[in-house]
Design a protein around this nucleic acid. Structure first.
Lengths: 339, 339
DNA sequence: TTGTACGCGTTATCAC
DNA sequence: GTGATAACGCGTACAA
């Protein structure tokens, strides 16, 4: 079923049929002709060939979504948020997983641009990321979300209020009486890791906690294994602590496992906190005190920004969107036991 | 950068360039010409336009992946399994979420076929599913996974050994001494729900447990809310039970919440079991006894089947692939307390 | 071994 | 208002 078939069936010319089937050009046609063409097109089950259309218009009505790993519970809600905005507008999404490997990222961006995606939503960017440059060199609009990239000219981004989250959590721990608060920082190559550890330093200083009392360990990935390793490193370090503020939930889960291995109870011996509020964290033991971020909404917001760019590449869209976060107090924090 | 540009730069004709850049037709060309063309193509950064290529060949090197909901932890590993096979072969995936709504399913299949996907992996099929017929009417190869559809001619599928899983779990409970075992069945519109409840009946009878001692409740969706509702219904029913075998993990989680609300302890008052072994189920309280299925491997297997079909639509591939399951005993099962 | 010519399905831009 | 034509980039039967 092609335009040609409909043309033959109705007796009109292909171009007339094309116009009748297009919302915009339809205005130049007699209402009667439009109706007739559309009816037989429907009857014959005509469906526009998006490849041919894209070849002609340079628009595929497809976007690329770049994420680190869909099995990480952080990302599926983001993907659904994106879909909830893009799908009603007629856009489909090609999703690729980078595993935070730069080479993979570059190749996958190639995969996307080869298929002529109209734009890219990038939730896997590193702070210094060549793939963004690559995308730009193809003149493909891009918005990052969850993380940001530091580049000139700037890339519009949608992130969470990392600083506020860390501040609230630190204040929460202080309220319980903690003065010796350790931090497991995330990878500094990611904006989330970097921003959270910077916020930790700033908030700690502002609250008058001594730097010497608040030891730090850096995780190389945002996962349980690294959380475990970093917690052990802190426990084996010279500085005692009563609370452990982790840069995300998975680090916290790993840290809790490590503390238990060392015979420490959470929260009675050490309080532990996370960040993100992955689902079913209320079912773990103890239910984890954490910071809730807006995953679905981040996807929505970024998609809306991209949509504006797709309609008009010169559109003046906000460069920075920072979504609010909420403290979720549960049971992994208690009053400190005297050291 | 098009073939035309390379042709101009090298002095050869477009078709010669096209051939030089294609693995298969290259054999007809002088080695020297091929080298020269490929070198300048590389230097000029040529990349084949997959749209134009697809328009010509009817192959987009893109497949469609239909799942119910990516935020359901069951599916991300499946998606990665698919990707692990398809991506190295040059295929990209368009992923769509049906939410188990038939109308949505139909529209999303349209989205996929419009974009000319070469094949579809369908993990969201209903037992009686019109979207599969729709796919077939477009002559697009399809393999279902996780679930199966009952259609003639049959659609190749990759599923888990549901019957074995249920049998093993029932035997496990019986070993602990349970004779009064309730079942929360999944939606019978899904092959997983139907096969598990059928297996429950068969295994129960084979083990000599009285049907009257083993009450049933049907969930309308595989989620916590329905698990909760069904558990309450069983508790309010006339038949007492000491164990509750749930058709999947999420139903079990909901059921445990319901039991607790009624002041019952798991596993001391009632043993509860799940199916699937979603990640971090070992972190919940109590750690859930369940059946582990091979999610990633299911994705891999289905992708390999589809790949065979993409190479040769007439390929003789196995109609049924049943992956092994493993019982994972944890702490949600104990010896029954006398009624 | 290389070049010619055409068509895939659509749409933009003419002319009438 | 409608029709004719060309072009998007590529692949391939056919000719040379």
């Amino acid at each position: 079923m092609t335009l040609k078939d409909i043309a033959k069936a109705t007796g009109f010319h292909v171009s007339t049929v094309s116009r009748a089937l297009d919302q915009n050009s339809r205005i130049n046609l007699t209402e009667d002709v439009v109706r007739q063409i559309r009816e037989t097109a429907d009857a014959m089950g005509y469906r526009r060939n998006r490849l041919a259309s894209g070849l002609r218009t340079n628009r595929t009505m497809t976007i690329g979504v770049v994420i680190p790993d869909i099995t990480n519970a952080l990302f599926p809600p983001i993907v659904r948020g994106i879909e909830s905005v893009m799908e009603p507008e007629g856009y489909a999404s090609i999703i690729v997983n980078t595993d935070n490997v730069p080479e993979r990222e570059m190749r996958l961006v190639d995969v996307l641009t080869e298929r002529g995606v109209d734009g890219i939503l990038h939730a896997a960017t590193l702070r210094d990321d060549d793939s963004i440059q690559l995308i730009r060199s193809h003149n493909v609009p891009v918005v990052t979300l969850n993380r940001r990239v530091e580049l000139d000219p700037p890339v519009p981004f949608v992130i969470n209020d990392e600083a506020l989250g860390i501040r609230m959590m630190l204040a929460h721990l202080a309220e319980y009486g903690h003065r010796r608060i350790a931090h497991i920082a995330g990878p500094v190559a990611l904006s989330t890791g970097a921003m959270r550890v910077a916020a930790f330093h700033a908030a700690r200083a502002a609250m008058g906690l001594a730097e010497a009392d608040c030891p730090l360990a850096y995780a190389e990935r945002f996962d349980e294994e690294e959380g475990h390793r970093a917690a052990i490193a802190l426990l084996d370090g010279p500085t005692p602590f009563t609370a452990l503020l982790c840069a995300n939930d998975r680090l916290a889960l790993g840290a809790i496992a490590a503390l238990r291995q060392r015979g420490l109870s959470v929260p009675h011996d050490v309080s532990v906190t996370g960040f993100n509020d992955l689902s079913s964290l209320d079912a773990v033991t103890p239910p984890l005190t954490t910071v809730r971020i807006l995953q679905f909404e981040a996807g929505e917001a970024a998609a809306r920004l991209l949509l504006a760019l797709l309609r008009d590449p010169q559109a003046d869209i906000p460069a920075e969107t920072v979504l609010p976060v909420v403290l979720v107090p549960r049971e992994s924090v208690a009053t400190p036991r005297p050291l």
